[in-house]
């Protein structure tokens, strides 16, 4: 029964304590780029969660088969396949999302959350735990995107959930709900918030707030310290000075 408890923990850690965006500072590129509107942020979050869940399951299932030496290329192939599958599905069934995300949809491949979880978790844990970890991290990523985009869209465009109709069209074409308009802000939007500077600014403030909350709970601040916070760092460094090959040779 001890295992069951820990699986619940694997799920919830991605939401707050180890939130990939605000705590681990991973996947910053998509976070900044697609958080201009809540609809595209949700779309991105769901797409990345699907990839993360699938790749975590497959990588965990194959963790004893994939040779140590070629594990990074193998992970990249697996992740890239799922990204392409998701991309094709989005193009076919949610074309509006495809045009909203543009190049950032295929760029999920290099989202460090996904490769990071593959390397740090799925390659070491059982299938169920990896699946739950992927789901939790994915939902944490989506929640962070949702928060960021809510602030940016309301202040920057004066709307909330604008364009959600095109996303909901997957389930039913009859949905007429297409978001809210915020009075006053809609006529006088603070456009800078949807522009690039606003992205950096809102992200900075969010990190400051999450640091404040973490501090109250006695947890360390979120830091991006060179590559130290990147889960790829250890393997990068290994490749960099060739230890990877030597290690394998030594065996």
């Amino acid at each position: 029964m001890a295992e069951k408890k820990s699986i619940g923990k694997e799920f919830t850690k991605g939401l707050i304590a180890e939130n990939p965006v605000f705590r681990l500072v991973l996947g910053t590129c998509p976070t900044l780029a697609v958080s201009t509107s809540v609809s595209s942020a949700i779309g991105m979050g769901v797409a990345a969660t699907a990839v993360l869940l699938c790749s975590n399951i497959v990588i965990s299932a194959l963790r004893k088969i994939i040779p140590q030496k070629v594990r990074i290329p193998a992970y990249i192939v697996i992740i890239a396949s799922f990204v392409t599958i998701i991309q094709l599905l989005v193009k076919a069934f949610v074309p509006a999302l495809d045009s909203a995300l543009g190049v950032y949809l295929p760029l999920i491949v290099v989202n460090c959350i996904i490769l990071g979880r593959a390397e740090a978790f799925a390659s070491k844990n059982a299938v169920l735990a990896s699946a739950v970890d992927g789901l939790g991290m994915g939902i944490g990523f989506t929640a962070a995107l949702f928060l960021m985009s809510t602030v940016r869209e309301i202040l920057g465009s004066g709307t909330f959930l604008s364009g959600i109709k095109d996303l909901l069209a997957v389930f039913s074409g009859d949905i007429q709900f297409n978001g809210f308009t915020i009075p006053f802000l809609n006529e006088n939007p603070l456009t800078v918030f949807v522009l690039a500077p606003g992205g950096f600014f809102v992200f900075g403030i969010m990190i400051a707030l999450s640091n404040k909350l973490a501090e109250r709970k006695g947890k360390p601040k979120a830091e991006l310290n060179g590559c130290a916070s990147c889960p790829m760092a250890s393997s990068c460094a290994l490749i960099a000075d060739g230890k990877n090959c030597e290690e394998a040779d030594a065996k």
């Binding site: 950096f200 600014f201 900075g204 403030i205 400051a208 640091n211 601040k221 979120a222 830091e223 991006l224």
Partner: peptide, 8 residues
């Protein structure tokens, strides 16, 4: 301090 001011 740290990351937030860097982002700002």
């Amino acid at each position: 301090q740290g990351l937030p001011i860097t982002l700002v």
